[in-house]
């Protein structure tokens, strides 16, 4: 048992999500890429995805998702944590602007950077803010305008990544309550940072005085190696999270929500964990891979559709650049997404 589990912890009190209205179909992508609907569906499980229109930034998505989560919880928040890989600007953080636009006043607000694992890293961070008494209610938003860093000509990533935002409100509560956040299993392997990266635009490239080579400002992913690590890390961390929560194993999960990276990765991980197909939550066919937003969007949509309901034992896991990964297990509370 962690120190937090002995006394007060964070409890999920509300959630919501927002997807930009523009939808790109596989058919649309075939007009500019050498690909086909069948190729994309069979390899990724994706049919459509939402993308931002010109001028829309991550904060615009985050504000909308954040407002819905606050409405769902029926309260305000005294801290805002924003998990994103696509901040509005390199400096400052995007969270303070989001907090201001939500009218939350001079609250604590900062960004968390853990690529597609961002929601779970943010969940652990927000739980710490509450457990320490630093905050009473935290608005945790995970938002990415991921398509803004994707090379539109890269068939490997352009068909997968998409935009969106999801948010939860966490309040102080008791570890035994439904919705209480227990131990979050987190990990990283920076020795493999090059497998998922945007090479240029940071201090390394800027201090070199050398202009970036063509394409280095875009996101890159070494697909085959990432696949292997994603399966290994999500499987192992899910087992650890189930154990840390006192479950017999991952097969105890009534619902399994994994970062919606690629339908084949998800199937392999869930098969390895012994989780039956009807217990796997998925929306990748409709929304693609929305980066950090992936998990909270999945939770909000599943709760709205009734596939995730109060009392379900829920296992969450994610994997992303860093490399980074995480998992946690909880009992789903009685909350209504807005």
């Amino acid at each position: 048992m962690s120190g937090a589990a002995a006394g007060r912890t964070a409890v999920i009190a509300g959630l919501g999500c927002h997807l930009p209205p523009d939808v790109v179909t596989n058919e649309d992508l075939t007009r500019r890429l050498d690909t086909s609907d069948e190729w994309i569906r069979s390899r990724t499980g994706i049919a459509t995805r939402h993308v931002v229109d010109p001028g829309t930034a991550t904060s615009d998505l985050a504000v909308e998702a954040g407002r819905r989560a606050l409405d769902s919880a029926g309260c305000e928040a005294d801290a805002v944590v924003l998990a994103t890989t696509t901040p509005d600007q390199p400096c400052p953080a995007t969270a303070p602007a989001v907090a201001a636009r939500l009218g939350l006043g001079p609250v604590a607000a900062f960004d968390v950077s853990a690529v597609c694992s961002g929601f779970l890293y943010g969940l652990a961070t927000a739980t710490g803010l509450i457990a320490s008494g630093t905050a009473e209610r935290v608005l945790l938003i995970a938002a990415d305008a991921f398509t803004t860093i994707i090379d539109p000509a890269d068939r490997g990533t352009a068909v997968i990544f998409a935009d969106g935002a999801g948010a939860v409100v966490l309040r102080a509560g008791d570890p035994a309550e439904p919705g209480a956040i227990g131990p979050v299993v987190l990990g990283s392997d920076g020795g493999l940072s090059r497998l998922i990266e945007v090479p240029a635009g940071g201090s390394r490239q800027r201090s070199s005085g050398v202009a970036p080579a063509p394409g280095e400002e875009f996101f890159r992913m070494a697909g085959r190696e990432v696949y292997r690590h994603a399966v290994d890390r999500m499987t192992a961390s899910s087992r650890q999270a189930a154990e840390a929560a006192g479950w017999a194993g991952p097969q105890d999960a009534d619902r399994f929500a994994a970062h919606q990276a690629n339908a084949r990765i998800l199937a392999t991980v869930a098969d390895d964990l012994g989780i039956a197909p009807e217990r796997r939550l998925s929306n990748i066919e409709r929304v693609g891979n929305t980066g950090a937003a992936s998990l909270p969007v999945l939770l909000a949509q599943s709760a709205a559709e009734g596939t995730l309901t109060a009392g379900h034992r829920l296992l969450l896991t994610a994997f992303g650049g860093g490399l980074s990964w995480g998992a946690t297990a909880l009992v789903w509370p009685d909350v209504k997404p807005v």
């Binding site: 390899r43 697909g223 085959r224 292997r228 084949r264 392999t268």
Partner: peptide, 22 residues
């Protein structure tokens, strides 16, 4: 495809204990 080859490599290792890279 290439991702399926990674899957095959992982399956061969897990099911048969054969270490053959993708």
């Amino acid at each position: 495809d290439s991702l399926a080859v990674v899957e095959l490599s992982m399956v061969l290792e897990k099911e048969l204990g054969l270490a053959i890279s993708d």
